[in-house]
Write a protein that binds this DNA or RNA. Structure first.
Length: 574
RNA sequence: CGGGGCGUAGCGCAGCCCGGUAGCGCGCCUGCUUUGGGAGCAGGAUGUCGGAGGUUCGAAUCCUCUCGCCCCGACCA
Protein backbone atom coordinates (compact mmCIF):
# COMPACT_ATOMS: atom_id res chain seq x y z
CA UNK A 1 0.00 0.00 0.00
CA UNK A 2 1.21 3.45 -0.87
CA UNK A 3 0.46 6.01 1.78
CA UNK A 4 -0.45 8.53 -0.91
CA UNK A 5 -3.25 6.20 -2.01
CA UNK A 6 -4.27 5.31 1.52
CA UNK A 7 -6.01 7.50 4.04
CA UNK A 8 -3.96 8.51 7.02
CA UNK A 9 -5.31 11.08 9.38
CA UNK A 10 -3.05 11.64 12.33
CA UNK A 11 -3.30 14.28 15.00
CA UNK A 12 -0.50 15.98 16.85
CA UNK A 13 -2.65 16.68 19.84
CA UNK A 14 -5.10 14.32 21.45
CA UNK A 15 -8.73 15.45 21.50
CA UNK A 16 -9.82 16.43 24.98
CA UNK A 17 -12.42 13.69 25.17
CA UNK A 18 -9.77 10.99 25.57
CA UNK A 19 -8.60 10.01 29.01
CA UNK A 20 -6.91 6.65 28.54
CA UNK A 21 -3.63 6.38 26.64
CA UNK A 22 -5.07 3.79 24.31
CA UNK A 23 -8.02 6.04 23.54
CA UNK A 24 -5.77 9.04 22.91
CA UNK A 25 -3.47 7.06 20.68
CA UNK A 26 -6.28 5.48 18.72
CA UNK A 27 -7.64 8.94 17.97
CA UNK A 28 -4.24 10.44 17.26
CA UNK A 29 -3.21 7.60 14.98
CA UNK A 30 -6.52 7.91 13.16
CA UNK A 31 -7.67 4.36 13.90
CA UNK A 32 -11.08 5.48 15.09
CA UNK A 33 -13.29 8.54 15.05
CA UNK A 34 -16.16 9.18 17.41
CA UNK A 35 -19.68 9.52 16.11
CA UNK A 36 -21.54 9.78 19.42
CA UNK A 37 -21.21 8.59 22.98
CA UNK A 38 -19.91 5.02 22.81
CA UNK A 39 -20.14 4.95 19.00
CA UNK A 40 -17.04 4.82 16.83
CA UNK A 41 -16.16 4.65 13.17
CA UNK A 42 -13.25 2.36 12.42
CA UNK A 43 -11.17 4.25 9.89
CA UNK A 44 -9.29 2.30 7.20
CA UNK A 45 -6.16 2.06 9.30
CA UNK A 46 -8.02 0.94 12.42
CA UNK A 47 -10.11 -1.52 10.49
CA UNK A 48 -6.95 -3.25 9.33
CA UNK A 49 -6.03 -3.82 12.97
CA UNK A 50 -9.50 -5.03 13.85
CA UNK A 51 -9.43 -7.45 10.93
CA UNK A 52 -6.14 -8.88 12.05
CA UNK A 53 -7.55 -9.61 15.47
CA UNK A 54 -10.52 -11.25 13.78
CA UNK A 55 -8.20 -13.33 11.62
CA UNK A 56 -6.41 -14.78 14.63
CA UNK A 57 -9.70 -15.43 16.38
CA UNK A 58 -11.16 -17.19 13.33
CA UNK A 59 -8.11 -19.35 12.85
CA UNK A 60 -8.02 -20.55 16.43
CA UNK A 61 -11.76 -21.01 16.71
CA UNK A 62 -11.87 -23.11 13.61
CA UNK A 63 -8.81 -25.05 14.76
CA UNK A 64 -10.77 -25.81 17.94
CA UNK A 65 -13.64 -27.14 15.86
CA UNK A 66 -16.04 -24.20 16.06
CA UNK A 67 -18.16 -23.25 13.04
CA UNK A 68 -18.77 -19.70 11.96
CA UNK A 69 -22.26 -18.41 11.26
CA UNK A 70 -23.84 -14.99 11.38
CA UNK A 71 -26.99 -14.19 13.29
CA UNK A 72 -29.14 -11.07 12.95
CA UNK A 73 -28.14 -8.07 15.02
CA UNK A 74 -31.80 -7.16 15.42
CA UNK A 75 -33.83 -9.67 17.39
CA UNK A 76 -37.55 -10.06 17.99
CA UNK A 77 -38.83 -9.41 21.51
CA UNK A 78 -40.72 -12.73 21.62
CA UNK A 79 -37.44 -14.63 21.84
CA UNK A 80 -36.35 -12.63 24.83
CA UNK A 81 -39.72 -12.96 26.48
CA UNK A 82 -39.30 -16.73 26.41
CA UNK A 83 -36.30 -16.54 28.72
CA UNK A 84 -37.73 -13.64 30.68
CA UNK A 85 -34.77 -11.47 29.80
CA UNK A 86 -36.83 -8.95 27.85
CA UNK A 87 -37.63 -7.35 31.19
CA UNK A 88 -34.64 -8.64 33.15
CA UNK A 89 -31.94 -7.23 30.94
CA UNK A 90 -33.06 -3.76 31.76
CA UNK A 91 -31.85 -0.43 30.48
CA UNK A 92 -28.78 -1.94 28.90
CA UNK A 93 -30.90 -3.34 26.11
CA UNK A 94 -31.64 -1.05 23.20
CA UNK A 95 -35.25 -1.71 22.31
CA UNK A 96 -36.61 -0.71 18.95
CA UNK A 97 -39.96 -0.91 17.23
CA UNK A 98 -40.66 -1.52 13.58
CA UNK A 99 -43.33 0.01 11.35
CA UNK A 100 -45.85 -2.58 12.53
CA UNK A 101 -45.26 -1.54 16.14
CA UNK A 102 -43.57 -4.83 16.87
CA UNK A 103 -40.82 -4.86 19.52
CA UNK A 104 -37.25 -5.73 18.75
CA UNK A 105 -33.91 -5.16 20.35
CA UNK A 106 -30.46 -4.60 18.96
CA UNK A 107 -28.81 -7.76 20.23
CA UNK A 108 -26.66 -7.30 23.33
CA UNK A 109 -25.87 -11.05 23.15
CA UNK A 110 -27.23 -14.03 21.26
CA UNK A 111 -28.17 -16.90 23.58
CA UNK A 112 -31.83 -16.68 22.62
CA UNK A 113 -31.18 -16.58 18.90
CA UNK A 114 -28.74 -19.46 18.91
CA UNK A 115 -31.17 -21.51 20.98
CA UNK A 116 -33.81 -20.79 18.40
CA UNK A 117 -31.43 -22.02 15.72
CA UNK A 118 -30.65 -25.08 17.79
CA UNK A 119 -34.23 -26.06 18.52
CA UNK A 120 -35.07 -25.89 14.83
CA UNK A 121 -31.99 -27.70 13.61
CA UNK A 122 -30.79 -30.13 16.25
CA UNK A 123 -32.76 -33.35 16.44
CA UNK A 124 -30.30 -36.07 17.27
CA UNK A 125 -27.33 -36.67 19.54
CA UNK A 126 -25.53 -37.54 16.32
CA UNK A 127 -25.41 -33.83 15.52
CA UNK A 128 -23.70 -33.10 18.82
CA UNK A 129 -21.53 -31.62 20.00
CA UNK A 130 -21.60 -28.46 17.90
CA UNK A 131 -20.00 -25.12 18.58
CA UNK A 132 -21.28 -22.17 16.56
CA UNK A 133 -19.61 -18.79 16.60
CA UNK A 134 -19.98 -15.41 14.97
CA UNK A 135 -18.09 -12.13 14.90
CA UNK A 136 -20.54 -9.31 14.97
CA UNK A 137 -21.60 -5.97 16.34
CA UNK A 138 -23.36 -5.94 19.66
CA UNK A 139 -25.06 -3.04 21.31
CA UNK A 140 -25.30 -2.51 25.04
CA UNK A 141 -26.60 0.79 26.28
CA UNK A 142 -23.95 1.18 28.98
CA UNK A 143 -24.71 3.45 31.91
CA UNK A 144 -21.49 5.23 31.28
CA UNK A 145 -19.66 4.52 28.04
CA UNK A 146 -16.04 5.56 28.39
CA UNK A 147 -12.44 5.02 27.37
CA UNK A 148 -13.24 5.00 23.67
CA UNK A 149 -13.59 1.59 22.21
CA UNK A 150 -12.78 0.01 25.58
CA UNK A 151 -16.26 0.49 26.96
CA UNK A 152 -18.26 1.48 23.93
CA UNK A 153 -21.95 0.90 23.44
CA UNK A 154 -21.58 -0.63 20.02
CA UNK A 155 -18.70 -3.07 19.91
CA UNK A 156 -17.41 -6.00 17.91
CA UNK A 157 -17.63 -9.31 19.68
CA UNK A 158 -16.84 -12.90 18.88
CA UNK A 159 -19.41 -15.06 20.59
CA UNK A 160 -19.59 -18.83 20.45
CA UNK A 161 -22.25 -21.20 21.74
CA UNK A 162 -21.81 -24.94 22.10
CA UNK A 163 -24.41 -27.70 22.52
CA UNK A 164 -23.79 -31.09 24.11
CA UNK A 165 -25.48 -34.33 24.86
CA UNK A 166 -24.04 -34.45 28.36
CA UNK A 167 -22.00 -32.49 30.86
CA UNK A 168 -18.80 -34.39 30.13
CA UNK A 169 -18.98 -33.24 26.53
CA UNK A 170 -19.56 -29.64 27.64
CA UNK A 171 -16.55 -29.85 29.90
CA UNK A 172 -14.42 -31.18 27.06
CA UNK A 173 -15.40 -28.30 24.79
CA UNK A 174 -14.96 -25.83 27.64
CA UNK A 175 -11.39 -27.08 28.04
CA UNK A 176 -10.84 -26.74 24.32
CA UNK A 177 -12.12 -23.19 24.35
CA UNK A 178 -9.93 -22.39 27.33
CA UNK A 179 -6.97 -23.65 25.31
CA UNK A 180 -8.10 -21.78 22.18
CA UNK A 181 -8.42 -18.53 24.13
CA UNK A 182 -4.98 -19.01 25.57
CA UNK A 183 -3.64 -19.52 22.05
CA UNK A 184 -5.47 -16.47 20.71
CA UNK A 185 -4.26 -14.02 23.33
CA UNK A 186 -0.76 -15.45 23.19
CA UNK A 187 -0.66 -15.03 19.42
CA UNK A 188 -1.89 -11.49 19.79
CA UNK A 189 1.14 -10.84 21.95
CA UNK A 190 -0.80 -9.87 25.07
CA UNK A 191 0.17 -10.33 28.69
CA UNK A 192 -2.94 -11.91 30.16
CA UNK A 193 -4.30 -14.18 32.85
CA UNK A 194 -7.22 -16.57 32.93
CA UNK A 195 -9.17 -15.89 36.07
CA UNK A 196 -11.85 -17.85 37.88
CA UNK A 197 -14.92 -15.66 37.72
CA UNK A 198 -18.42 -15.11 38.91
CA UNK A 199 -20.97 -16.06 36.31
CA UNK A 200 -22.80 -12.76 36.71
CA UNK A 201 -25.95 -11.93 34.84
CA UNK A 202 -25.58 -14.53 32.10
CA UNK A 203 -25.87 -17.36 34.56
CA UNK A 204 -24.56 -20.92 34.68
CA UNK A 205 -21.78 -22.64 36.58
CA UNK A 206 -18.08 -22.82 35.65
CA UNK A 207 -16.56 -19.65 34.22
CA UNK A 208 -13.22 -18.04 33.46
CA UNK A 209 -12.44 -14.48 32.48
CA UNK A 210 -9.41 -13.66 30.38
CA UNK A 211 -7.83 -10.42 31.49
CA UNK A 212 -5.15 -8.36 29.83
CA UNK A 213 -3.12 -6.96 32.69
CA UNK A 214 -3.01 -3.16 32.74
CA UNK A 215 -3.14 -0.58 35.49
CA UNK A 216 -5.99 1.15 33.72
CA UNK A 217 -8.09 -2.01 33.83
CA UNK A 218 -11.62 -1.74 35.15
CA UNK A 219 -11.55 -5.08 36.93
CA UNK A 220 -9.74 -6.03 40.09
CA UNK A 221 -7.99 -9.38 40.18
CA UNK A 222 -6.69 -11.13 43.28
CA UNK A 223 -3.77 -13.47 42.88
CA UNK A 224 -1.13 -15.10 44.99
CA UNK A 225 2.47 -14.47 43.91
CA UNK A 226 3.56 -17.67 45.66
CA UNK A 227 0.95 -20.04 44.29
CA UNK A 228 -1.16 -20.54 41.15
CA UNK A 229 -4.18 -18.99 42.86
CA UNK A 230 -5.89 -16.28 40.80
CA UNK A 231 -9.44 -15.04 40.91
CA UNK A 232 -11.70 -12.17 40.17
CA UNK A 233 -11.98 -10.09 43.33
CA UNK A 234 -15.73 -10.62 43.27
CA UNK A 235 -15.13 -14.32 43.86
CA UNK A 236 -11.94 -14.41 45.94
CA UNK A 237 -12.70 -15.80 49.36
CA UNK A 238 -11.74 -13.79 52.40
CA UNK A 239 -10.71 -16.36 54.97
CA UNK A 240 -11.79 -16.05 58.59
CA UNK A 241 -9.03 -14.64 60.80
CA UNK A 242 -7.00 -17.38 62.45
CA UNK A 243 -7.58 -18.35 66.04
CA UNK A 244 -10.31 -17.59 68.54
CA UNK A 245 -11.78 -14.13 69.01
CA UNK A 246 -9.77 -12.37 71.76
CA UNK A 247 -11.46 -12.02 75.13
CA UNK A 248 -12.94 -8.62 76.07
CA UNK A 249 -10.42 -6.44 77.85
CA UNK A 250 -12.10 -3.04 77.83
CA UNK A 251 -15.24 -1.66 79.36
CA UNK A 252 -18.00 -0.38 77.12
CA UNK A 253 -17.82 3.40 76.83
CA UNK A 254 -19.64 6.19 74.99
CA UNK A 255 -17.59 8.79 73.16
CA UNK A 256 -18.83 11.96 71.51
CA UNK A 257 -17.63 12.03 67.92
CA UNK A 258 -19.20 15.12 66.38
CA UNK A 259 -18.81 15.31 62.64
CA UNK A 260 -16.99 11.98 62.53
CA UNK A 261 -19.24 9.73 60.50
CA UNK A 262 -16.79 7.56 58.60
CA UNK A 263 -14.85 4.73 60.15
CA UNK A 264 -11.58 6.31 59.06
CA UNK A 265 -12.52 9.63 60.67
CA UNK A 266 -13.70 8.02 63.87
CA UNK A 267 -10.56 5.90 64.13
CA UNK A 268 -8.33 8.91 63.57
CA UNK A 269 -10.31 10.97 66.09
CA UNK A 270 -10.10 8.27 68.75
CA UNK A 271 -6.50 7.47 67.82
CA UNK A 272 -7.29 3.84 67.14
CA UNK A 273 -6.57 1.70 64.07
CA UNK A 274 -9.45 1.53 61.55
CA UNK A 275 -9.20 -2.23 61.85
CA UNK A 276 -10.67 -1.84 65.33
CA UNK A 277 -13.85 -0.24 64.02
CA UNK A 278 -17.01 -1.79 62.65
CA UNK A 279 -19.25 -0.18 60.09
CA UNK A 280 -22.89 -1.09 59.90
CA UNK A 281 -24.90 -1.12 56.68
CA UNK A 282 -28.64 -1.23 56.95
CA UNK A 283 -30.69 -2.75 54.21
CA UNK A 284 -33.31 -5.30 53.44
CA UNK A 285 -33.51 -8.70 51.83
CA UNK A 286 -35.68 -9.77 48.93
CA UNK A 287 -38.65 -10.18 51.26
CA UNK A 288 -38.26 -6.67 52.59
CA UNK A 289 -37.01 -7.78 56.03
CA UNK A 290 -34.43 -5.50 57.65
CA UNK A 291 -30.83 -6.72 57.71
CA UNK A 292 -27.88 -5.00 59.34
CA UNK A 293 -24.48 -5.89 57.87
CA UNK A 294 -21.32 -5.55 59.93
CA UNK A 295 -17.97 -5.04 58.27
CA UNK A 296 -14.60 -4.10 59.65
CA UNK A 297 -13.98 -0.39 59.08
CA UNK A 298 -11.33 -0.93 56.41
CA UNK A 299 -13.33 -3.53 54.51
CA UNK A 300 -15.73 -3.10 51.60
CA UNK A 301 -18.92 -4.98 50.98
CA UNK A 302 -18.83 -7.43 48.09
CA UNK A 303 -22.10 -7.23 46.15
CA UNK A 304 -21.81 -10.69 44.69
CA UNK A 305 -21.11 -12.36 48.00
CA UNK A 306 -23.87 -10.57 49.89
CA UNK A 307 -26.32 -11.47 47.15
CA UNK A 308 -25.63 -15.14 47.82
CA UNK A 309 -25.99 -14.85 51.61
CA UNK A 310 -28.88 -12.37 51.68
CA UNK A 311 -30.81 -12.87 48.45
CA UNK A 312 -32.26 -9.65 47.12
CA UNK A 313 -30.04 -7.47 49.36
CA UNK A 314 -30.66 -3.79 48.92
CA UNK A 315 -29.27 -0.85 50.80
CA UNK A 316 -31.76 1.13 52.86
CA UNK A 317 -32.57 4.72 51.98
CA UNK A 318 -32.15 7.54 54.48
CA UNK A 319 -35.87 7.47 55.11
CA UNK A 320 -35.82 3.77 55.87
CA UNK A 321 -32.91 4.21 58.27
CA UNK A 322 -34.78 6.89 60.14
CA UNK A 323 -37.87 4.72 60.29
CA UNK A 324 -36.02 1.74 61.78
CA UNK A 325 -33.35 3.34 63.91
CA UNK A 326 -34.02 7.04 64.01
CA UNK A 327 -32.02 9.90 62.45
CA UNK A 328 -28.67 8.24 63.07
CA UNK A 329 -27.04 8.30 59.69
CA UNK A 330 -23.29 8.12 60.30
CA UNK A 331 -23.76 6.83 63.83
CA UNK A 332 -25.42 3.50 63.23
CA UNK A 333 -24.38 0.37 65.09
CA UNK A 334 -25.46 -3.12 66.11
CA UNK A 335 -25.81 -2.43 69.84
CA UNK A 336 -29.26 -2.14 71.40
CA UNK A 337 -31.26 -2.68 68.23
CA UNK A 338 -34.44 -4.72 68.12
CA UNK A 339 -33.10 -8.05 66.96
CA UNK A 340 -36.55 -9.43 66.43
CA UNK A 341 -36.99 -6.88 63.66
CA UNK A 342 -33.45 -6.56 62.39
CA UNK A 343 -31.30 -9.53 61.47
CA UNK A 344 -27.54 -9.06 61.93
CA UNK A 345 -25.13 -10.51 59.38
CA UNK A 346 -21.45 -10.05 60.18
CA UNK A 347 -18.44 -10.53 58.00
CA UNK A 348 -15.96 -13.06 59.32
CA UNK A 349 -13.41 -10.39 60.16
CA UNK A 350 -15.93 -8.18 61.91
CA UNK A 351 -17.25 -11.09 63.92
CA UNK A 352 -13.72 -11.83 65.08
CA UNK A 353 -13.18 -8.42 66.66
CA UNK A 354 -13.10 -7.73 70.38
CA UNK A 355 -13.15 -4.29 72.03
CA UNK A 356 -14.31 -2.67 68.81
CA UNK A 357 -15.72 0.74 67.99
CA UNK A 358 -19.11 1.24 66.37
CA UNK A 359 -21.90 3.76 66.07
CA UNK A 360 -24.18 4.13 69.10
CA UNK A 361 -27.42 4.65 67.16
CA UNK A 362 -27.42 8.16 68.54
CA UNK A 363 -25.80 11.14 66.91
CA UNK A 364 -23.06 12.12 67.43
CA UNK A 365 -21.91 9.21 69.56
CA UNK A 366 -19.79 6.11 69.00
CA UNK A 367 -19.23 3.23 71.40
CA UNK A 368 -15.79 1.87 72.24
CA UNK A 369 -14.75 -1.37 73.88
CA UNK A 370 -17.74 -3.15 72.40
CA UNK A 371 -17.81 -6.94 72.59
CA UNK A 372 -20.06 -9.58 71.11
CA UNK A 373 -21.69 -11.83 73.66
CA UNK A 374 -21.29 -9.20 76.40
CA UNK A 375 -22.66 -5.93 74.99
CA UNK A 376 -24.76 -7.38 72.23
CA UNK A 377 -25.84 -10.81 71.08
CA UNK A 378 -23.69 -12.76 68.64
CA UNK A 379 -24.55 -12.05 64.98
CA UNK A 380 -27.37 -14.10 63.53
CA UNK A 381 -25.06 -15.11 60.71
CA UNK A 382 -21.32 -14.90 60.12
CA UNK A 383 -20.26 -15.11 56.49
CA UNK A 384 -17.71 -13.96 53.95
CA UNK A 385 -19.29 -10.81 52.54
CA UNK A 386 -16.33 -8.52 51.90
CA UNK A 387 -13.82 -7.86 49.14
CA UNK A 388 -10.39 -9.26 49.77
CA UNK A 389 -7.56 -6.79 50.34
CA UNK A 390 -3.93 -7.05 49.31
CA UNK A 391 -2.13 -8.87 52.09
CA UNK A 392 -5.07 -11.10 53.02
CA UNK A 393 -4.16 -14.77 53.26
CA UNK A 394 -4.59 -16.63 49.97
CA UNK A 395 -7.62 -18.93 49.99
CA UNK A 396 -5.40 -21.85 49.02
CA UNK A 397 -3.42 -21.31 52.20
CA UNK A 398 -0.14 -20.71 50.42
CA UNK A 399 0.81 -17.14 51.09
CA UNK A 400 -0.67 -13.68 50.81
CA UNK A 401 -2.91 -12.17 48.14
CA UNK A 402 -1.88 -9.34 45.86
CA UNK A 403 -4.24 -7.25 43.74
CA UNK A 404 -3.82 -6.34 40.09
CA UNK A 405 -6.00 -4.66 37.53
CA UNK A 406 -7.14 -6.23 34.31
CA UNK A 407 -9.11 -5.52 31.16
CA UNK A 408 -11.58 -8.29 30.51
CA UNK A 409 -11.16 -9.36 26.90
CA UNK A 410 -12.63 -12.83 27.04
CA UNK A 411 -15.10 -14.79 29.11
CA UNK A 412 -16.07 -18.45 28.91
CA UNK A 413 -19.06 -19.97 30.66
CA UNK A 414 -20.61 -23.33 31.24
CA UNK A 415 -24.23 -22.34 30.86
CA UNK A 416 -25.51 -25.85 31.44
CA UNK A 417 -29.22 -26.01 30.55
CA UNK A 418 -30.35 -22.58 31.71
CA UNK A 419 -31.17 -21.31 28.23
CA UNK A 420 -31.67 -24.56 26.37
CA UNK A 421 -34.29 -25.43 28.95
CA UNK A 422 -36.05 -22.06 28.88
CA UNK A 423 -36.05 -22.11 25.08
CA UNK A 424 -37.16 -25.72 24.92
CA UNK A 425 -34.24 -26.98 22.91
CA UNK A 426 -34.23 -30.73 22.84
CA UNK A 427 -32.79 -33.67 20.94
CA UNK A 428 -33.19 -37.43 21.00
CA UNK A 429 -30.37 -39.15 22.88
CA UNK A 430 -28.95 -42.58 22.10
CA UNK A 431 -31.90 -44.17 23.88
CA UNK A 432 -34.42 -42.22 21.86
CA UNK A 433 -35.30 -40.05 24.82
CA UNK A 434 -35.94 -36.32 24.46
CA UNK A 435 -33.13 -34.50 26.26
CA UNK A 436 -32.17 -30.89 26.92
CA UNK A 437 -28.67 -30.15 25.67
CA UNK A 438 -25.92 -28.78 27.89
CA UNK A 439 -24.63 -25.43 26.67
CA UNK A 440 -21.48 -23.40 26.86
CA UNK A 441 -20.82 -19.87 25.68
CA UNK A 442 -17.56 -18.15 24.90
CA UNK A 443 -17.01 -14.46 24.20
CA UNK A 444 -14.15 -12.27 23.08
CA UNK A 445 -14.36 -8.49 22.90
CA UNK A 446 -12.66 -8.09 19.54
CA UNK A 447 -12.74 -4.29 19.43
CA UNK A 448 -11.74 -4.09 23.06
CA UNK A 449 -8.71 -6.28 22.34
CA UNK A 450 -7.34 -3.53 20.11
CA UNK A 451 -7.58 -0.98 22.91
CA UNK A 452 -6.18 -3.42 25.46
CA UNK A 453 -3.24 -4.24 23.22
CA UNK A 454 -2.40 -0.54 22.86
CA UNK A 455 -2.82 -0.02 26.57
CA UNK A 456 -0.13 -2.64 27.02
CA UNK A 457 2.09 -1.70 24.07
CA UNK A 458 2.90 1.96 23.64
CA UNK A 459 5.61 4.50 24.36
CA UNK A 460 6.05 8.26 24.25
CA UNK A 461 6.05 8.19 20.45
CA UNK A 462 2.92 6.20 19.97
CA UNK A 463 1.63 2.70 19.50
CA UNK A 464 3.88 -0.35 19.37
CA UNK A 465 1.60 -2.95 17.88
CA UNK A 466 2.48 -6.57 18.42
CA UNK A 467 3.19 -8.04 15.03
CA UNK A 468 0.00 -10.06 14.86
CA UNK A 469 -2.31 -7.05 14.98
CA UNK A 470 -0.21 -4.35 13.36
CA UNK A 471 -1.93 -2.65 10.41
CA UNK A 472 1.17 -3.29 8.26
CA UNK A 473 4.18 -5.53 8.69
CA UNK A 474 6.70 -2.92 7.71
CA UNK A 475 6.90 0.65 6.47
CA UNK A 476 9.29 2.08 3.92
CA UNK A 477 10.35 5.64 4.61
CA UNK A 478 12.23 7.22 1.72
CA UNK A 479 14.30 10.31 2.42
CA UNK A 480 13.61 12.70 -0.43
CA UNK A 481 11.62 10.54 -2.79
CA UNK A 482 10.90 13.45 -5.06
CA UNK A 483 14.48 14.69 -5.23
CA UNK A 484 16.68 11.70 -5.52
CA UNK A 485 16.50 9.31 -8.42
CA UNK A 486 18.72 6.97 -6.46
CA UNK A 487 16.30 6.88 -3.54
CA UNK A 488 13.31 6.53 -5.82
CA UNK A 489 14.72 3.54 -7.64
CA UNK A 490 15.88 1.80 -4.48
CA UNK A 491 12.52 2.41 -2.79
CA UNK A 492 10.45 1.14 -5.70
CA UNK A 493 12.68 -1.91 -6.03
CA UNK A 494 12.40 -2.75 -2.35
CA UNK A 495 8.65 -2.15 -2.38
CA UNK A 496 8.25 -4.57 -5.27
CA UNK A 497 10.50 -7.16 -3.66
CA UNK A 498 8.66 -7.09 -0.35
CA UNK A 499 5.26 -7.22 -1.97
CA UNK A 500 6.30 -10.13 -4.10
CA UNK A 501 7.35 -11.90 -0.93
CA UNK A 502 3.81 -11.50 0.41
CA UNK A 503 4.72 -8.93 3.02
CA UNK A 504 2.17 -6.30 3.97
CA UNK A 505 4.15 -3.15 3.34
CA UNK A 506 3.27 0.50 3.64
CA UNK A 507 5.32 2.75 1.38
CA UNK A 508 5.15 6.24 2.80
CA UNK A 509 5.45 8.15 -0.45
CA UNK A 510 3.65 11.24 0.82
CA UNK A 511 5.25 14.55 -0.04
CA UNK A 512 6.13 15.34 3.55
CA UNK A 513 9.28 16.17 5.39
CA UNK A 514 11.22 13.27 6.86
CA UNK A 515 10.29 14.20 10.40
CA UNK A 516 6.61 13.95 9.61
CA UNK A 517 6.98 10.57 7.94
CA UNK A 518 9.02 9.13 10.79
CA UNK A 519 6.76 10.48 13.49
CA UNK A 520 3.61 9.19 11.76
CA UNK A 521 5.01 5.72 11.28
CA UNK A 522 5.95 5.58 14.94
CA UNK A 523 2.58 6.87 16.01
CA UNK A 524 0.60 4.26 14.10
CA UNK A 525 2.76 1.49 15.48
CA UNK A 526 4.07 -0.39 12.46
CA UNK A 527 6.50 -2.91 13.99
CA UNK A 528 9.39 -2.53 11.50
CA UNK A 529 10.66 0.12 9.15
CA UNK A 530 13.25 0.69 6.49
CA UNK A 531 14.63 4.18 6.02
CA UNK A 532 15.97 4.64 2.50
CA UNK A 533 18.31 7.57 2.06
CA UNK A 534 20.98 8.66 -0.36
CA UNK A 535 23.51 8.65 2.40
CA UNK A 536 23.09 4.94 3.02
CA UNK A 537 22.51 3.97 -0.55
CA UNK A 538 25.91 5.31 -1.51
CA UNK A 539 27.33 2.73 0.89
CA UNK A 540 24.86 0.18 -0.42
CA UNK A 541 22.84 0.01 2.80
CA UNK A 542 19.39 0.73 4.18
CA UNK A 543 18.49 1.44 7.76
CA UNK A 544 16.32 -1.15 9.45
CA UNK A 545 14.67 -0.55 12.78
CA UNK A 546 12.18 -2.38 14.94
CA UNK A 547 9.56 -0.16 16.58
CA UNK A 548 10.60 -1.36 20.01
CA UNK A 549 14.33 -0.77 19.46
CA UNK A 550 16.16 2.48 20.09
CA UNK A 551 18.73 2.06 17.33
CA UNK A 552 18.57 1.30 13.65
CA UNK A 553 20.92 -1.18 12.02
CA UNK A 554 22.49 -0.85 8.58
CA UNK A 555 21.49 -3.59 6.23
CA UNK A 556 22.98 -4.18 2.74
CA UNK A 557 20.28 -3.55 0.15
CA UNK A 558 20.49 -7.12 -1.08
CA UNK A 559 19.81 -8.48 2.39
CA UNK A 560 16.81 -6.32 3.18
CA UNK A 561 14.20 -8.98 2.48
CA UNK A 562 16.01 -11.68 4.40
CA UNK A 563 16.57 -9.38 7.36
CA UNK A 564 12.93 -8.42 7.48
CA UNK A 565 11.72 -11.98 7.11
CA UNK A 566 13.94 -13.09 9.95
CA UNK A 567 12.68 -10.27 12.14
CA UNK A 568 9.05 -11.00 11.30
CA UNK A 569 9.64 -14.64 12.04
CA UNK A 570 11.17 -13.80 15.41
CA UNK A 571 8.26 -11.48 16.23
CA UNK A 572 5.72 -14.14 15.35
CA UNK A 573 4.05 -15.08 18.58
CA UNK A 574 2.67 -18.57 18.19
C1' C B 1 -29.86 8.64 37.97
C1' G B 2 -26.93 12.07 41.47
C1' G B 3 -22.64 15.40 41.60
C1' G B 4 -18.92 18.24 38.84
C1' G B 5 -16.94 20.25 34.29
C1' C B 6 -16.92 21.61 29.18
C1' G B 7 -19.31 23.08 24.27
C1' U B 8 -15.81 29.36 20.37
C1' A B 9 -12.38 27.23 12.84
C1' G B 10 -10.61 20.21 11.35
C1' C B 11 -7.62 19.59 16.42
C1' G B 12 -5.79 22.04 21.05
C1' C B 13 -7.20 26.47 23.41
C1' A B 14 -7.84 32.12 24.81
C1' G B 15 -11.77 35.74 25.01
C1' C B 16 -16.88 35.45 29.13
C1' C B 17 -15.92 37.77 35.60
C1' C B 18 -16.20 43.76 33.81
C1' G B 19 -21.54 43.35 26.92
C1' G B 20 -19.27 47.10 21.75
C1' U B 21 -19.71 42.49 16.61
C1' A B 22 -14.00 36.95 17.50
C1' G B 23 -8.50 35.62 18.35
C1' C B 24 -3.84 32.33 19.16
C1' G B 25 -1.09 27.66 18.11
C1' C B 26 -1.31 23.38 15.07
C1' G B 27 -3.63 21.69 10.65
C1' C B 28 -5.56 23.22 5.57
C1' C B 29 -4.79 26.10 0.48
C1' U B 30 -1.11 29.12 -2.90
C1' G B 31 3.92 30.68 -3.93
C1' C B 32 9.13 30.78 -3.02
C1' U B 33 12.97 28.70 -0.16
C1' U B 34 14.05 24.31 2.52
C1' U B 35 14.58 18.77 2.89
C1' G B 36 17.65 12.55 7.78
C1' G B 37 13.16 13.92 13.28
C1' G B 38 6.55 17.06 13.41
C1' A B 39 10.51 23.43 8.37
C1' G B 40 11.06 29.13 7.14
C1' C B 41 9.02 33.39 4.86
C1' A B 42 4.93 35.69 2.33
C1' G B 43 -0.07 35.43 1.14
C1' G B 44 -4.98 33.01 1.85
C1' A B 45 -9.55 30.20 3.26
C1' U B 46 -12.52 28.43 7.31
C1' G B 47 -16.83 30.14 12.69
C1' U B 48 -25.12 30.18 12.39
C1' C B 49 -19.37 31.25 19.33
C1' G B 50 -23.99 23.70 20.60
C1' G B 51 -29.50 25.13 20.03
C1' A B 52 -33.96 28.12 21.46
C1' G B 53 -35.92 32.08 23.98
C1' G B 54 -35.19 36.53 26.93
C1' U B 55 -32.66 41.29 28.86
C1' U B 56 -30.20 45.33 26.09
C1' C B 57 -29.28 50.48 21.40
C1' G B 58 -25.93 46.24 21.15
C1' A B 59 -24.90 39.34 23.62
C1' A B 60 -19.59 34.45 22.60
C1' U B 61 -20.02 37.47 27.18
C1' C B 62 -25.84 38.53 31.44
C1' C B 63 -30.68 35.46 32.49
C1' U B 64 -33.98 31.09 31.45
C1' C B 65 -34.74 26.62 29.06
C1' U B 66 -32.78 22.84 26.11
C1' C B 67 -29.28 19.45 23.56
C1' G B 68 -24.51 17.17 23.36
C1' C B 69 -19.91 15.56 25.36
C1' C B 70 -16.34 14.46 29.36
C1' C B 71 -15.12 13.21 34.50
C1' C B 72 -16.53 11.23 39.47
C1' G B 73 -20.20 8.27 42.14
C1' A B 74 -21.01 0.79 46.47
C1' C B 75 -20.92 1.99 51.66
C1' C B 76 -18.45 4.90 55.02
C1' A B 77 -25.06 3.31 58.25
Amino acid sequence: MRASQFFMSTLKEAPGEAELVSHQLMLRAGLIRRLGSGLYTWMPLGLRVLRRVEAVVREEMSRAGALELLMPAVQPAELWQETGRWDQFGEQMLKIRDRHERDFCFGPTHEEVICDVARREIRSYRQLPVNFYQIQMKFRDEIRPRFGVMRAREFLMKDAYSFHEDYASLQATYERMYAAYTAIFRRLGLVFRAVAADTGAIGGSGSHEFHVLADSGEDAIAYCPDSPYISNVELAEALAPAGERPAPSQALARRDTPGKTTCADVAAFLQLPVTQTIKALLGKDGEGAAVLLLLRGDHDLNDVKIGKVVPGWQLASDAEITELLGPVRGYMGPVGIDRSRIRVVADRSAAHLADFVCGANAAPVHLTGVNFGRDLPEPDLVADIRNVLAGDPSPDGQGLLALARGIEVGHIFQLRTKYSNAMQVSFLDRNGKATTPEMGCYGIGVSRVVAAAIEQNHDARGIRFPRALAPFDVSLIPMGLGRSELVREATEALYATLQAAGIDVLLDDRDERPGVLLADQELIGVPFRFVIGERGLKEGVLEFQARDQEEAVKVPVAEALATLQAALQAAQTV
